[in-house]
């Protein structure tokens, strides 16, 4: 069956050429890759804004290079969309990215280098690593997507290493300032980042002309729950490696228990309305 595209470019049929991935897979890629590009655009802006805060010429150059690499990622991801014929959006649509960008700018405006490094190099890069690791598993995605994601992953891991090195140095100089910056950044940025581990959106699907309800992570053999746990594990690992004490990080991680709104659960009830967390079908007669 021939595939066709909607006026905006989103796929509505099955792929030609023996690719047995269905339209749901490419719609999901369209959604994920567009969101990834938005994150990369934000990263370019963040690194660019951070350059003047860096203390040495070498670190300024290093930061410019980081921005340049994020530009390269945008081009790679856009090319992937063209090659596999799925729509990609090359501007920031989802409000979470805009909010993170705003918080970063606030920190930069105050000259708060630790907060800037934490937001971009630790928090955002950690989440990027989870994303690109997921996409780089060829068995779950496709050869082209896996190759692009693997290339980008190498850069993001390097950015994380750079961030860890910078944060460690700052922690040695002034641990209180850096820990305060972590608390400030965590409460502003982590709810936004975790809010994006979802297949629902504010308006990205409209922009891409993708049916929101058709998006399901089983197309890449994972699920929201797995991604959230992987993101949480990666975040904890990053904070450990950067040298933050568990006495500082444990309360921050505890606060993440509220990110899902602590929906009600229904254990052993025939509540036809379901808990706040699930559909009536899945709630019926059991727990959701």
């Amino acid at each position: 069956m021939a595939h066709r595209t909607s006026p905006q470019g989103a796929l509505t049929g099955r792929r030609p050429g023996g690719d047995d991935r269905d339209v749901r897979y490419f719609n999901l890629l369209s959604f994920i890759v567009s969101n990834a590009i938005a994150g990369e655009i934000m990263a370019v802006e963040n690194y660019s804004e951070m350059v003047h805060l860096m203390l040495t010429t070498d670190s300024k150059i290093e930061t410019v290079n980081q921005a340049k690499e994020e530009c390269k990622h945008i081009l790679l991801l856009s090319k992937l969309g063209r090659s596999l014929e799925f729509a990609v959006e090359r501007q920031i649509v989802e409000p979470q990215w805009k909010n993170i960008r705003k918080h970063f700018s606030t920190a930069a405006g105050k000259g708060d280098l630790p907060a800037c490094l934490i937001i971009q190099d630790l928090l955002t890069e950690s989440m990027a690593i989870v994303l690109y690791k997921t996409l780089s598993a060829e068995v779950d995605t496709d050869p082209q997507t896996a190759a692009v994601a693997s290339n980008i992953l190498v850069d993001e891991l390097e950015h994380l290493d750079i961030g860890v090195r910078r944060i460690k140095a700052l922690l040695d100089e002034d641990p209180d300032r850096v820990q305060d910056a972590l608390v400030w950044a965590h409460h502003r940025v982590m709810p936004e980042l975790f809010g994006m581990i979802s297949t629902s959106c504010h308006s990205l699907c409209d922009v891409l002309a993708v049916d929101c309800s058709s998006l399901a992570l089983d197309s890449i053999r994972t699920d929201i729950e797995t991604l959230k746990i992987q993101a949480l594990e990666r975040y904890i690992e990053t904070l450990d490696v950067a040298g933050f004490s568990p006495t500082v990080t444990s309360p921050l991680i505890a606060s993440m228990s509220a990110y899902e709104g602590m929906g009600r659960i229904a254990v052993g009830l025939n509540d036809a309305s379901g808990g706040a967390c699930c559909s009536p079908e899945s709630a019926k007669g059991k727990r959701c």
Partner: peptide, 28 residues
């Protein structure tokens, strides 16, 4: 939950936060 059969419809607070956490994180 109810002492007779254990049914519960509250939030993931208190003991249920721990139990849900065990389910999500230790039972994978």
């Amino acid at each position: 939950g109810d002492s007779r059969d254990g049914h519960y419809s509250g939030k993931r607070y208190g003991l249920y936060q721990l139990w849900s956490g065990i389910e999500r994180l230790l039972c994978r």
